[in-house]
């Protein structure tokens, strides 16, 4: 293996480098909040801001490199420390979510009266689904029978 004799750089100025999958890259904007944890500072959360999205995709991993600058940072840092980061894309207060298993097909829910109703869904993961319109807090829904 070839080892460099020396590496030149500013040992006080650091950036965070993150890998973002091509599926998600369209949602990333400059200035979005980044929350990160470090293996070397267990249990603490720090903040940063998205500064730059490298435009060229890495073909091997099908991901983009996104760089972020620190807002809060741990006192001592070293090059190449590992970071786990979440980029906050959207914050929505008072959103309505239902368990994923209550969603029938792509956009239907079953009301407790037995009627089906069409809803507009927003974000979803394997546990919960955000309901944008079509359902209110007071509606009662039933789990869809499989």
């Amino acid at each position: 293996m070839l080892n460099p004799v020396a590496i030149i750089g500013d040992a006080t100025n650091f950036l965070i480098e993150m890998k973002v999958d091509e599926n998600d890259i369209a949602r990333i904007r400059q200035g979005q909040r980044v929350l990160y944890t470090m293996d070397s500072y267990k249990g603490k959360v720090f903040e940063a801001l998205v500064e730059k999205i490298e435009p060229l995709m890495e073909e091997q991993s099908r991901s983009f490199t996104v760089k972020a600058v620190f807002v809060t940072r741990p006192p001592t840092l070293y090059p190449n420390l590992s970071v786990e980061a979440n980029i906050v894309i959207q914050v929505k207060e008072k959103a309505l979510t239902i368990p994923r298993s209550y969603l029938v097909g792509d956009s239907m829910v079953k009301l407790s009266s037995g009627k089906m109703r069409k809803v507009v869904v927003g974000l979803k993961d394997y546990q919960k689904v955000e309901i944008k319109t079509g359902l209110s807090e007071s509606d009662k829904i039933m789990e869809s029978a499989r």
Binding site: V20, N23, D24, T37, D39, V88, K124, D125
Partner: peptide, 25 residues
């Protein structure tokens, strides 16, 4: 399983949709 956003006080009580969580280092 301990994603940064879940540890921050501000977001701890809300439901967070996290996309493409990758295995850390």
């Amino acid at each position: 399983i301990y994603q940064p956003v879940r540890m921050l006080h501000e977001f701890r009580d809300s439901y967070n949709f996290i996309r493409s969580v990758k295995a850390g280092s």
